[in-house]
Design a protein around this nucleic acid. Structure first.
Length: 499
RNA sequence: GCCCCGUUAGUGUAGUGGCCUAACACGUCUCCCUUUCAAGGAGAAGAUCACCGGUUCGAAUCCGGUACGGGGUACCA
């Protein structure tokens, strides 16, 4: 029953390939990975594809992609093999069938020929009688001969585990602590389906045992069936692993997270410009905390500080606002050249995929982009915002909103005059550096008898096409003198034409 | 229906019997900084600790019940 403390920590993530890896699944994987890494143990990836109905051939690859993106690397898995290969359940069928045979031999399980139709009838009858639906254990009383006759007749045969008459069953969960279940409430359940595939209940236990898994980390939906799993272990004479049932993640409306809540899979967050560091950090803080006020952490720090005892039992709501904030923090903490590597692919992507206009030739000049990055780094909340924030440095024809040109505190006529003065100054200004330009333009504002704001706004709009931009003079220098001159001229022209 | 789990500001968390007239963070609002937008700084509002009862000199913390939310009750995982 007890876990040998000296045995190495081995955890696993065992998704079924039925679709995209949901953010809740990612968090389960993260905790599982964290437990392994935290103690220098191993993390195993296993594919549980025993449901042939819901199997999705593309799911496995996308699940791996999500895990890799988050940096949840595995030491053994279907793609890299390992000492307990194969790591895909459909390739391990003999193991489960053998276990089922053993359980039958030891009297812990039996073959059952009850058909799905009969089960349906049974449940309908129970429902009609106002009783809770469930299997009535009728297979226990069938003779070998009956089963053989059914088999010969081509009826489907399953193997069921026999719930022992043991009263209450107690076991320990690392998060929920002592658990107690009344076995009389359970019915004999299927461990081997009629197609020869095991159910989850049998398969995961056989695999976890052979793969020497020390901690079974999984979602809370498994809590009710945990006693079955304990029973199977006992029947097989195997030690129990440590159970770690992690809490649920809910959507904004407190319902189970689903597609309705926006991004559902991990890779969608990647595609929206989130840093895997930030998602990692954020997810770790859902249902766990280091115990003090620390929130912003790098992977290594989380690995070091993680502990099972501090995993919460209560579900938490996924707050994308806070993720956004955290993403901004992680972006700001990044060194420029590091950020450059993240941001370049976004800028260079096709326009239709959020990159710069296709008219801008690729590859971009790394040094030029690097020189612009400090201007926008602290303004970014996601990587994807880089395109809009840097766009006007690359394109020739900016979209100019004539209405916006004067700003709120001026009028077209004044703006036009200001821009003409500015244009003259811009042509002459030497050296062409932010500090110097600022000094010159402040002097100009004084000369014109206006505050800097009303002067700078038209220039900003003329040069960037937007009322919101990085500091003006850094921006002007970044764009370059000639292009700024051209943009000012064009702005003046448009102002005159509209008035 | 039955079984299981949960319940601290809108959200994530801290708190494990007295330091709690409940802390931190996100979000919201105000102000400062400032050429815009951010970032940063300073503040504010926001929680009868789900409710009721019990134990105790003392309870967010322990116990019981209720309510609400969620999960399970499959030849799905």
């Amino acid at each position: 029953m007890s876990t040998d403390n000296s045995s190495p920590v081995r955890t696993r993530f065992a998704p079924s390939p039925t679709g995209l890896l949901h953010i809740g699944g990612v968090r389960t994987a993260l905790f599982s990975w964290l437990i392994a890494r935290q103690s220098g143990g191993q993390f195993i990836l296993r594919i549980e594809d025993t449901d042939r109905e819901r199997y999705d051939a593309d799911a496995e690859a996308s699940i791996m992609e999500s895990l890799r993106w988050l940096g949840l690397d595995w030491d053994e898995g279907p793609d890299i093999g390992g000492p307990h290969a194969p790591y895909t359940q459909s390739e391990r069928l003999e193991l489960y069938q053998q276990a089922a045979k053993d359980l039958i031999a030891s009297g812990h399980a039996y073959e059952d020929d009850t058909t799905p139709e009969e089960l349906e009838e049974l449940r309908a009858a129970q429902k009609a009688a106002g009783k809770p639906p469930g299997y009535d254990n009728r297979g226990r009383y069938k003779t070998k001969e009956e089963i053989e006759a059914s088999r010969a007749a081509g009826k489907p045969i399953v193997v069921r585990f026999k719930i022992p008459d043991l009263g209450k069953l107690k076991f320990k969960d690392a998060v929920l602590d002592e658990m107690e279940f009344d076995l009389s409430l359970l019915q004999d359940f299927v461990i081997l389906k009629s197609d020869g595939y095991p159910t989850y209940h049998l398969a995961h236990i056989v695999d976890d045992h052979h793969m020497k898994i020390s901690h079974v980390v999984r979602g809370p939906e498994w809590i009710p069936s945990a006693p079955r799993h304990v029973l199977i272990h006992q029947a097989l004479g195997w030690d129990l692993p440590e159970y770690v049932h992690v809490p649920l993640i809910l959507g904004k409306d407190k319902a189970k997270l689903s597609k309705r809540h926006g991004a559902a899979s991990a890779t969608e967050y990647r595609d929206e410009g989130f840093l895997s560091e930030a998602v990692f950090n954020f997810l770790a803080l859902l249902g766990w905390s280091p115990g003090d006020d620390t929130e912003v952490m790098e992977r290594a720090e989380i690995v070091e500080r993680f502990s099972i005892d501090r995993i919460l039992q209560s579900p938490s709501v996924f707050d994308s606002e806070k993720l956004l904030w955290l993403n901004g923090i992680h972006i700001r903490q990044m060194a420029v050249d590091q950020l450059l590597d993240r941001v370049l692919p976004v800028l260079e992507a096709p326009e239709s995929e959020g990159g710069l206009p296709d008219s801008v030739s690729r590859p971009l000049d790394r040094d030029y982009v690097a020189s612009l990055l400090p201007l926008v780094q602290e303004r970014l909340k996601t990587l994807n915002e880089i395109t809009d924030s840097l766009k006007f440095f690359f394109i020739d024809d900016i979209d100019l909103d004539v209405e916006a040109l004067p700003g709120r505190k001026s009028d077209p006529e004044t703006a036009a005059r200001s821009l003409e003065e500015s244009l003259a100054l811009l042509k002459e200004a030497e050296p062409f550096e932010p500090e110097h330009l600022e000094a010159e333009f402040r002097a100009l504002a004084e000369k014109l008898g206006v505050k800097p704001g009303p002067l700078f706004t038209p220039i900003r709009v003329a040069v960037t096409g937007s009322t919101m931009a990085p500091p003006l003079f850094d921006t002007i220098v970044g764009i370059g003198r000639d292009r700024c001159i051209a943009r000012l001229e064009s702005a003046i022209e448009k102002l005159r034409a509209s008035s």
